[in-house]
Structure formats: structure tokens, C-alpha cells
Design a protein around this nucleic acid. Structure first.
Lengths: 218, 218
DNA sequence: AGGAAAGTTTGCGTGCACGCACTTTTTCTG
DNA sequence: CAGAAAAAGTGCGTGCACGCAAACTTTCCT
């Protein structure tokens, strides 16, 4: 795979990306998220505003990326690290929980910031989708080439479940408007800790993960 | 629930929404999607540009909405229509296939248009997420109040699977760049008919749907 | 080494999303 | 039925995303 000497080009690119992430988060913390313009971030990172959005599609993505970092890769690695003996469902669940709870002090502070603005909250939730491609890869590896298609669906479902868990987690108050006109019962569980939310959201998918792991038709 | 006489207000609102959808699609077909500005659509529908995006968040959404119409509601209704005896997995799968294949002539023409522009393609795929809330409601109804949380996860997973099916379907040519750096095998199945794609994508979720339907622990 | 090819950054221009404050229309209530 | 309250539409201004084409840097190949 891509195991070539990274090359000067690529290293500079990553450096620029990190510089932008850092600058975005720092400025957002210093002066409140609404007082930061793309121009400011670009200037702080030493590139032009135009270059900024060769790296990030929106203003919010840069700020969120500083917290998210490369969680996608870490989750995929964590799944791959589990011995082949354990259930796929368990491997995935534990990897996810692990990577979402190992949160540093600085990240926690940033999360508080994120929850204050709807646009940041949304960007944060959207970032969940990034785990899908790497997750597809590791799951596909477990299932063999015949399950490549299945792997994509499962990875997407896991991503969706994680997103839901996060949604519920960072919404202590308002709880309506979730389901359609029905309301679907009305109550939405008083939102426990993040690990609990994650496990609860992933649990319904366990049967699907188990089934995929079995050769073909039992 | 919302079973009040709709009121003049609401009716006008829906009329405006439909007028915008219609105008957007018509203009896009007439003069190619890139030659249509929001201002044009708004004018054709008899509202101000500012009002336009009280209804649609992006230029593309209006065009896509003309094709999508209220498919969400139809899918939910189709699921609800199945007798309570059939497996949930079957009810959902058939409802989805049914609503995505009952496509009129005009819709088919519009789909061709959509595939020509990446931004429209993306908007079309994003519209898939709209089925999630109504689907949550009908599934929750089947599972009873204890399964409200499960219902959300399953509905989201179904939506994700449908999205994947559509992605693959309207991409006859290019096939790389799907999974991470791995490539996950490389081949992605030569993309069959839409119903086949949908069934294939939903199949891996069947065990999860089955399990949810069983009382608690078998 | 040297030059061609591939990839990146940048300035410029256009159309758009969206907040705010204000007007108009519909609905609710006494 | 009248007036208050709520909601939708409108005009305006600001910052942003993104296409395009030109300048520049790194990489590749002979």
C-alpha cells in the first residue's frame, strides 16, 4: 500500500493542515467562535484564504478537526489490533468506546466550546462520517473479499449509530423533534454517559455484525 | 397528532414549496443546471430570492426535491401498510424497493440530468437521509415504546444502506476511491439493477431487524 | 544534472447562504 | 368583530465557497 517515503511535498501538506487546525482552534477559544473569520485563520497559519479551503470545506471543519484529529485512523487501527478471535461486534464496539473516551483536557475544553454553537455541533457530528472508509477497510479484511459490499453497509451503519449516540449525548435539554410527526413515544432516555450511549447505540447492530462473520448460510 | 384542518397558511406554504420545486426542475431541464440562478427560480415561482432559501438550504435541493417529492412519507406509509405478520426486514426492504422503482417518465428524465452534475448527485444522495425520521416512527411503532432507541439506530442504518445502494447504482464507471488506502479488494460488483442493488445493500441488516423484533432475549 | 511533467498555492470574480430588522398576512382570543 | 400575537415574506449587508487561470515548487525520468 502507500508505504513509500512520504516525500517533502506530503510532509509540508500535513504541516499546513495541522497549522490550520491549531490556528482555528486557538483563535476560536481566544475570542469566541463567531469572531473568527477564515481570513484570520489563514493569516495565522501563513497561507492565503484561498488555500484555506483547499484544505477545509467550511470554516467550522477546521475548528472541529483540531478535536477530531485523525480519530478515524485510530479507530480502524484499534479494531485491527483486536485478536481475530473476538467477535467483530465486540471489537468494533470497544474500539469506538476507547477512542471516544480517551479525551485529553484540551479536547474537553474544546468540546464545551463546540456545544455552544449549532453550526459547530453539526460539523462535529458530520465528522463522524469520516470513520466510514477506514472502518470499511478493516471490516472487509475480516470478512474476506466476498464481503466487501457487506462491509460497506456495516461500516456505514456503525457510523450512523455513533452519530446518534453523539447527538443524544450532547443534547441534555430539548428532546422532541427527533422522530416524525408521531413523536414515537415521547421520551428519549435521560442520556447517560458517553460510553453508555455508544454501547447502547451499537448494540442493535450486533446481530448484523455476528451474521456477517459467519461463513455464509448457517 | 397533526390532524387539524390544515389552515390557509399551511396550504399556501405547501403551494409555494411545490411552485419552487417545479420551477427549479423546469428551468434546469430547459437550460442546463448551471444556467439557473436562485434568483431565476424565485422569480419563476413568484417569491423573493430571500424567501427561496427559507424553503431550501441550497440551490440543488430544490431541483432534487422535484424528483424526490415526498418519498419519505410514501416509504413510511408503505411499511405501515404491510400486515403485522410479515418480518420487519421484509416489510422495510419491499417498501423501499417499491417506492424507488415506481418512477415516472418525467422523473427518469430528471434523474439523467442529475447524474450529469456532481453537486446534484450529492444533493440527491443527501436527500436519502430524509427517510430516517418517518422510518424511525413506523419501526418504533412495531417495536413498542421500549424499542424507541433501537428504532432510531435501525432507521439510520437502513437510510445508510439505501444511500450506498444509490451511490453504487448511479456510478457505472469509476470505482476506486471508495474505501480507504486499502482498496478493500478492488472490485465493486458490476452494479446491477436498482432493485437488486437495494436488496443487496439491505440484506446485511436483516439479522439486526429480526433481532429487534424478538421480544428481548431469546 | 537538467528539463519536462505533475501538483500546489494564489488572486480574482461570481453567486450564494444567512443574520437582522422591518412589513405584511394569517390566526387566535376576548 | 376587533385588536393582539404569531408567523411568513422581504430588503439589505457580510462573509464564504468555488471555478478559473497564472505563478511557483517538487518530483520524476532520461
Amino acid at each position: 500500500m502507500t508505504t513509500r517515503p512520504p516525500g517533502l511535498r506530503e510532509r509540508k501538506k500535513q504541516a499546513t493542515r495541522e497549522a490550520l487546525r491549531e490556528a482555528a482552534l486557538r483563535l476560536a477559544v481566544e475570542r469566541g467562535p463567531d469572531q473568527v473569520r477564515v481570513e484570520d485563520i489563514a493569516e495565522a497559519a501563513g497561507v492565503s484564504p484561498r488555500t484555506y479551503n483547499n484544505y477545509f470545506a467550511s470554516r467550522e471543519q477546521a475548528i472541529v478537526a483540531a478535536v477530531t484529529a485523525d480519530r478515524e485512523a485510530r479507530i480502524a487501527a484499534a479494531v485491527a489490533a483486536r485478536p481475530a478471535g473476538v467477535r467483530l461486534a465486540d471489537a468494533v464496539t470497544e474500539a469506538v468506546v476507547e477512542q471516544y473516551t480517551n479525551t485529553g483536557e484540551r479536547e474537553h475544553e474544546a468540546l464545551l466550546l463546540i456545544t455552544t454553537r449549532t453550526t459547530l455541533r453539526d460539523a462535529f457530528l458530520d465528522a463522524t462520517a469520516d470513520i466510514e472508509p477506514p472502518l470499511t477497510a478493516v471490516i472487509a479484511e475480516r470478512l474476506g473479499d466476498t464481503g466487501a459490499h457487506t462491509a460497506r453497509v456495516l461500516a456505514a451503519s456503525v457510523a450512523a449509530a455513533v452519530r446518534i449516540a453523539l447527538e443524544d449525548w450532547l443534547r441534555p435539554t430539548r428532546n422532541a423533534e427527533a422522530a416524525g410527526s408521531f413523536g414515537a413515544g415521547g421520551l428519549v432516555v435521560p442520556s447517560g454517559s458517553l460510553p453508555d450511549q455508544l454501547r447502547a447505540a451499537l448494540a442493535p447492530l450486533a446481530p448484523a455484525l455476528d451474521a456477517a462473520e459467519r461463513p455464509t448460510q448457517p
